[in-house]
Amino acid sequence: MSNIPADLRYAKSHEWARLEADGSVTVGITHHAQELLGDMVFVENPTVGRRLAAGEECAVVESVKAASDVYAPIAGEVVASNAEVERAPEIINHDAYAAWMFRVKPDDAAELDNLMDADAYRAFVDAETH
């Protein structure tokens, strides 16, 4: 069962990214990622103000099964961190697209074009699982 919203961009490491009206980019992990990992029990977000390079390890999610790194889908500065997912990591299991992790002020929003769109990500997930 795939749940891949059409309005988001996706990284091969299973993060989603959404360009907001204010120019910031919101980041979380995909429904598919949380399904692979199982019940979430720990999240550590990057601190606000940290500078991230695209593809840099910047957060950690841990499920009952394993720890998994989260990579920055785009370069920029962290402008917000969602304390709610750190307090209640299971909200990622309930709705991976509502449970955002952090927001980045991108150096160059055009870098979002380097990420996959929904169709490409769906094909990518299918190829990985079959």
Partner: peptide, 8 residues
């Protein structure tokens, strides 16, 4: 079976 949906 590892789980049937939610291990917790």
């Amino acid at each position: 079976p590892l789980h049937y949906g939610s291990q917790v």
